[in-house]
Simulated assay, not measured.
Amino acid sequence: MSDHIIRVTNFRKTYGDFVAVDDVSFTVQTGEIFGLLGPNGAGKTTTLECLEGLRQPDSGTLRVANIDPTREQHKLRHVIGVQLQAAGMPEAMTPNEAMNFFCAYHRVSPRFDLLDRLGLTSKRKAQFHTLSTGQQRRLALALAIAHEPQVLFLDEPTAGLDVASRTELHKMMRELKANGTTIILATHDMAEAEQLSDRVAILLNGRLTTIGTPMEITATGAGLTKVSVHTRANCLLNSQNDIPAVSQQLTKGDYAIFFSHDIAQTVPALIAFVQEQADELIDLRVERPSLEERFLELTHNEFGG
C-alpha cells in the first residue's frame, strides 16, 4: 500500500485566458509537513482549493486519502481539515457555538480545550464579528483540527498572529505531525517553511519549479555560504586581500562578510590572514544559504530580474 496520501498528476486550472496552474504533479507522504511556496498569483491557493474540493480542475487527477475531491466531496469533508486565509462565519455566532456546530457535523465531541489552548478562553461567548483578525484565525484553526483530520490544509496560517500565537501554532503542528496528521502548509514565510516543512514545492507562474527538502533546495542554488568575521583591530574591513573561493565581499558594522563557494578554502585563509596581521579573532560565523535566499534567486531567474 502506498504511503502517499496526496497525489496530484498533470493538474491544470484556468480562469478564462489566465492559466493559474499548468501541468503540476507531486505527491505528499503520509505524516509529513509539506510546504507549498510561491509569490502571489503563483497558484498555491488554487491548488489547495482544488484539493479541498472547493474548485474543479480543468484536467489532471487529484487524490486525497484515495478520495476524488471533485466527485466525493462528502467523504472528503471527514478526512480533511481546512484553515482558509479568510474565515467566514455568521457575525453573531460565538466560538462555543461554532465548535458545537462543526463537531456535530463531524459527529465528534466538542473540543473546547482547543479554544482555551489557542487563547480564546475569554472570547468563547463573544460574537464572531467582535473578534480580532488574529482571534478569528485561531478559531478557524481550532475548528479545522477538532475532528482530528488525516490531512490538514493551512493557508497562510500565521498571518495576523502575534508571536505567542505563532509559537503555539508551530508547537501544535509538530504534535499533529507526530500523531500522524499530514499537513499542507501554504505560506509566504520562508523561515516558517524552512523550520517546519519536511519537503517544500515552489510554484512560479503556475508551474512547479522545484521540490525537495529545504536543505536539498538550498543546496541546488548558487551555493554561496556567508562567512561573517569580526576582529579586535578590524583588519579585514575594507582590505583588498585575496581570500580564496570568495565571490563577493562587503562590510556590515564591525563585520567583514564574505560569500564563499568553498568554505574549506575560505575559512582557513581568513584565520591565517588575521594571525598574520597580529589581530585577534572575536567572532566568526558560517551560515548556509537560507530557503528565502534560494526562493529569491529562483524568482529573480524566473522573472528575469
Score class of each variant (00 low, 15 high):
4 H>F: 13
24 V>Q: 04
43 G>V: 13
155 D>Y: 11
87 A>Q: 10
156 E>W: 09
258 F>C: 01
173 M>W: 01
298 L>E: 13
201 A>K: 06
69 P>C: 04
252 K>P: 00
286 V>C: 09
105 Y>M: 15
214 P>Y: 02
269 A>I: 05
273 F>D: 05
161 L>E: 05
30 T>S: 13
21 V>K: 07
86 A>V: 14
89 M>V: 01
268 P>W: 02
115 L>N: 08
53 G>I: 01
214 P>I: 05
78 H>A: 09
252 K>D: 14
95 P>V: 12
293 E>F: 04
236 L>F: 01
253 G>P: 08
173 M>D: 06
305 G>S: 11
305 G>W: 12
298 L>I: 14
14 T>Y: 03
281 L>T: 09
209 T>G: 10
116 D>V: 09
28 V>A: 05
213 T>V: 09
270 L>N: 04
123 K>D: 13
103 C>A: 12
7 R>I: 12
118 L>M: 15
248 Q>E: 13
125 K>R: 15
220 T>D: 12
110 P>L: 06
93 M>T: 08
157 P>G: 10
245 A>V: 00
72 E>L: 03
166 R>K: 15
71 R>K: 13
148 E>T: 12
33 I>E: 00
25 S>F: 09
265 Q>K: 14
283 D>E: 15
149 P>V: 10
12 R>H: 12
278 A>L: 10
131 L>W: 13
79 V>A: 04
110 P>E: 03
141 L>N: 06
25 S>A: 07
16 G>M: 01
305 G>E: 13
174 R>T: 12
45 T>F: 06
223 G>L: 02
229 V>T: 01
90 P>M: 10
70 T>L: 03
160 G>K: 08
155 D>C: 08
285 R>L: 09
244 P>D: 05
100 N>S: 11
231 T>K: 03
51 L>K: 08
182 T>F: 00
286 V>S: 09
47 T>G: 03
159 A>V: 15
32 E>F: 12
176 L>V: 06
197 S>N: 02
78 H>R: 14
258 F>A: 01
70 T>Q: 09
171 K>L: 11
251 T>Q: 09
68 D>Y: 00
155 D>V: 12
304 G>Q: 15
34 F>K: 04
222 A>K: 15
273 F>K: 10
179 N>S: 14
78 H>P: 00
48 L>S: 00
60 G>N: 07
263 I>H: 04
28 V>C: 01
120 L>W: 08
47 T>P: 02
122 S>R: 14
120 L>C: 07
31 G>E: 00
282 I>K: 12
229 V>Y: 05
284 L>Y: 00
299 T>W: 09
26 F>E: 01
105 Y>N: 06
81 G>A: 07
240 Q>P: 04
267 V>M: 02
199 R>A: 10
88 G>P: 02
297 E>V: 01
203 L>Q: 04
156 E>Q: 06
9 T>K: 15
96 N>A: 11
202 I>G: 07
281 L>E: 08
263 I>R: 02
95 P>C: 11
252 K>H: 11
85 Q>G: 08
140 A>I: 11
181 T>W: 04
136 Q>L: 04
225 T>D: 02
23 D>F: 09
166 R>V: 13
296 L>Y: 07
